[in-house]
Design a binder for these strands. Structure first.
Length: 659
DNA sequence: CATTAGACTTGCAGCCATCGAC
DNA sequence: GTCGATGGCTGCAAGTCTAATG
């Protein structure tokens, strides 16, 4: 369907990205492999395995959400307030759980049959070493130029100048916004009376050159020196790498505090170029078990901003994002932790649950197209797009963020009604990645979109106006909750990505070798990536590499020709021994050519497609694992080391697992 | 009931170590 | 053994979504 028109087009997922429809047969063949949850070890009973916890044990701790999610809802009329233990103490906020506990327990998560522990609690014991701060700034003394003259800078000023100098070769230098934001920040650091009066006459080249030279120097360091430094670094980091959670040794994801620098927003971010200041202990809130030793830090005389013992959250530390006061930076455990893998499983189970409701939901939103109320119609169409095209929700954004959209905040200029019930989408989505797609839609949808673009009654809509002006992402999510417990927009993306993979992998295939099967897998993966519009920048040097491949092909072709001629000659000369040898060589050469051709095609094909994101975030690993088992493909062919580790919880999926 | 705070997931790019071709 | 392409890993930006708040 959509294989021919690669290249320019992007999310060109043709019309039928979601031909889901059937599959009722394999209704929830639940993760049979997971050990019976009822026999799960008690919370803290587990030993303290090293880094790698046994998958079985880990899996056992996670009940297959099936039974929990299913009927449990009406249960739990009993407020879960009993263990009001850890409360008191700490600062004002943090203490939300208690008051609202009954409510959330009653409606949302009535897990735990026997109710051994409160579901809102994520841990009982938590120990860790906090965060690792970046080194303090060491002045290099290299002077920048202003109007051709050397300029004296204080270490603080020099640090900021260096942040800028280092970015000399990036295309941020071409962005006026970046330059003006930087100048505003730099000017403040320079103070009012400084000789440097504007950016135009400032020349940071000396600092840039120094920086590049340093980098070179580091590269050419003797091997032993390099290794010594590496060892030192590792030793310094060692204690931060792990946390102790209820007796489990878990990897910490990001324990390094972000170093100061210039903010590199994506797309046309209004704040690009602003100075991201240094973060100190006084900025950081630590979350840790009550009895655990307080993490140390190198800043004498300074205290952590706050120390909490909040068992309802999974973060170890956070600070306010210095660029955007309303954002936070968190330190969490790594992807292979119990916290992360458990929610990963929940995510996929929720998506599988959607499968049971999807027919009804689709009927529902199609019916909404005929509603007398605009808002109904808009919700119906929005959900149709989300379901069909796997669009993101699209929440409202502030003016101090890049101007990007998702489904619910599409603007009228982002859609165009073409002939033949086609609609063309063209907008900047997350990370300012362009989504460009022409799709066939139901005639009624086409009509409605035309109508929404025009605006219903008074005042026609103009560019910049919301396509769905009577609803937003929150409204839609509220509606979804009525259709299925816990349902939200993003679940559709997970659902569609995973079900498409499941279906594609269950298509007939003549592939025999592992490489061929891997090809099947990658193609399926690619379909999903295209559906989700997971793009990447064309790798630099791509065209050069393609040319090389072309040249190589030509060369090989030449060799093949020569061999062929020789072979014919040998044959004519009745030299059968020689002919046979040559024949073999000809065959081999052909194979070689085919391989290079295949490689070239794949490379061209995937130059703009990123396969990784869907693998990491959208594709239920059990689909892949089951497929590997059934088709006898080593899992390592499709999952790298970190994926294998991240998905340890899914390893027992049976060969006949269906999403 | 709308807005915001807070927590957690998703996403791309760039660096860097490794791997495979010569 | 060298060299450059590949792909993994890290960094951190940018989404989503729910509960708390006023």
């Amino acid at each position: 369907m959509s294989d021919s028109e690669d290249d320019m087009p992007l999310a060109q997922r043709g019309g039928g990205a979601v031909p889901v429809g059937a599959l009722q047969n394999n209704i929830l063949p639940l993760p049979r492999a997971l050990p019976d949850p009822r026999s799960a070890p008690t919370l803290t009973a587990m030993p303290l395995p090293g880094v790698r916890q046994a998958a079985v044990v880990a899996a056992a701790k996670m009940r297959p959400p099936e039974k929990a999610a299913k009927k449990a809802v009406p249960v739990a009329p009993k407020p879960a307030k009993r263990k009001a233990a850890d409360d008191d103490g700490k600062a004002g906020k943090a203490k939300k759980q208690r008051t609202i506990e009954p409510r959330s327990a009653a409606k949302a998560k009535p897990k735990k049959e026997g109710a051994v522990e409160d579901k809102s609690l994520k841990w009982n014991l938590l120990e860790h070493s906090g965060v690792l701060f970046p080194p303090e700034y060491t002045p290099h003394g290299v002077k920048m130029l202003y109007d051709g003259r050397l300029v004296d800078l204080t270490p603080e000023q020099e640090e900021v100048a260096t942040m800028f100098a280092v970015m000399k070769a990036t295309d941020y230098m071409q962005k006026p916004k970046f330059l003006s934001n930087f100048w505003a920040g730099f000017r403040e650091v320079l103070g009012p009376k400084h000789v440097v009066k504007c950016l135009d006459k400032a020349d940071f080249t000396p600092i840039y050159d120094w920086f590049m030279a340093e980098r070179e120097k580091k590269k050419t360091l003797p091997k032993e020196e390099k290794e010594r430094m590496k060892k030192e670094k590792e030793a310094a980091e060692a204690k931060y790498k792990f946390a102790l959670v209820d007796g489990r040794k878990e990897q910490v994801g990001n324990f390094r505090v972000e170093p100061p620098g210039l903010f590199r927003g994506r797309g046309e971010h209004p704040k690009m170029g602003m100075i991201k200041r240094r973060i100190f202990p006084r900025d950081i809130t630590i979350n840790i078990g009550e009895g655990a030793p307080l993490p140390e830090h190198p800043y004498v005389g300074q205290d952590w901003r706050e120390v909490r013992h909040d068992k309802t959250v999974t973060w170890l530390a956070f600070w306010k994002d210095p660029i955007s006061e309303k954002d936070y930076k968190y330190v969490w455990l790594a992807a292979n932790s119990q916290f992360k893998s458990e929610s990963d499983l929940q995510k996929y189970e929720k998506a599988r649950k959607l499968k049971l409701h999807i027919d009804k939901i689709r009927e529902d939103y199609e019916r909404a197209w005929e509603s007398g109320r605009v808002q109904e119609r808009q919700m119906g169409v929005a959900l149709y797009f989300i379901d069909k095209l796997a669009l993101r929700a699209g929440h409202e954004k502030d003016d101090d963020e890049a101007d990007t959209v998702g489904c619910c905040n599409l603007k009228v200029e982002n859609v165009e009604c073409l002939a033949n019930n086609h609609i063309k989408f063209d907008f900047l989505g997350k990370d300012s990645i362009r989504y460009e797609n022409e799709v066939a839609v139901k005639p009624r949808v086409w009509e409605l979109v035309k109508q929404f673009c025009r605006g219903d009654k008074k005042g026609d809509k103009a560019a910049g106006d919301q396509l769905f002006d009577t609803m937003d992402a929150n409204d839609l999510n509220k509606r979804l909750k009525e259709l299925m417990d816990g349902l939200s927009v993003k679940v559709f993306r997970t659902y569609n990505a995973s079900i498409v993979l499941d279906q594609l992998l269950h298509k007939e295939s003549a592939s025999e070798t592992v490489d061929e099967k891997k090809g099947d897998y990658d193609r399926a993966n690619k379909e999903v990536a295209i559906l989700c519009n997971h793009q990447r920048a064309v790798p630099k040097g791509h065209s050069g590499q393609m040319e090389k491949l072309e040249a190589r092909l030509l060369e090989l072709q030449g060799e093949l020709d020569t061999l062929s001629v020789d072979y014919l000659a040998a044959q004519r000369a009745k030299n059968s021994a020689k002919a046979e040898t040559l024949w073999r060589k000809v065959e081999k050469k052909k194979e070689q050519i085919a391989k290079v051709e295949l490689n070239a095609r794949a490379k061209e094909d995937l130059k703009m497609v990123a396969l990784g994101t869907s693998k990491i975030n959208y594709l239920d690993p059990r689909i892949t694992i089951a497929w590997c088992k059934a088709r006898e493909v080593p899992l390592e062919k499709v999952f790298n080391k970190s994926l294998l580790s991240k998905f340890f919880w899914a390893m027992d999926a049976p060969p006949d697992f269906r999403f």
